[in-house]
Amino acid sequence: MNDVTFTFRVDESLKGQFAAAAKARDRSGAQLLRDFMRDFVRQQDEAAMHEHWFRREVQIGRDSADAGNLVSAEDVESEAVAWREETRRKPKSAAS
């Protein structure tokens, strides 16, 4: 791994507060900044992977709908009614 220097400007008060907070945790500011950078890159990678997964799932659903693989609203409601009735009966039968 090639180390490089990353230089940026920050308010002097913030730098002092950050250095003190880092020292209180037995870490250097540079260590924390590297950790923060790694976490940010990881979060961005995870967000990109989720976005890719989501778009793929949506496309699969669209392709399925375009192919005619649909369930009518009436069928969905019928199944929901049956499910709700079954759910309501379970506590009664469990108490018996």
Results as ranks from 00 to 15, higher is better:
F6A: 09
F18V: 07
H50P: 00
R34A: 05
F54A: 07
G68E: 02
E86A: 14
D35W: 02
G29S: 15
R25D: 09
W83V: 11
L70P: 00
T7G: 04
K90H: 11
A82E: 14
R84T: 06
D39Y: 05
E86K: 14
F40I: 00
A20N: 04
D11K: 12
A19T: 12
A24K: 12
N69A: 13
S93P: 00
R56D: 08
Q31R: 09
P91W: 01
A21P: 00
D45G: 06
W83L: 15
R89K: 14
D11P: 01
D75F: 04
R42S: 05
E77G: 00
Q43N: 09
K23M: 05
T87A: 15
H52A: 13
D63A: 09
V58Q: 11
R42H: 10
R84W: 13
S93H: 07
L32G: 01
S78N: 12
E57N: 08
S13Y: 04
V76N: 02
L70A: 03
S64N: 10
R34I: 02
D45R: 15
H50C: 01
F40D: 07
R27A: 13
V81Q: 08
D66V: 05
L14N: 02
S96K: 13
Q59N: 09
F40E: 06
A30G: 05
T87W: 13
V71A: 04
V10I: 14
L32C: 07
A47E: 11
F18P: 01
E77K: 14
L70I: 15
S13Q: 09
F6Y: 14
F36N: 00
V58A: 01
G61M: 10
A22D: 05
S78K: 08
R84L: 15
A80V: 14
S96L: 09
R38P: 00
V76C: 04
V4T: 10
D26A: 13
T7K: 14
A95D: 07
H50A: 13
K15I: 03
A82S: 13
S28F: 05
A20Q: 13
Q17S: 08
H50F: 14
R62K: 14
E46S: 04
A73P: 03
R34K: 10
S28R: 02
A47N: 04
L14T: 09
V58R: 12
D3W: 07
L70W: 06
R25L: 10
L33T: 02
A94T: 05
D3I: 12
S13F: 04
E12D: 11
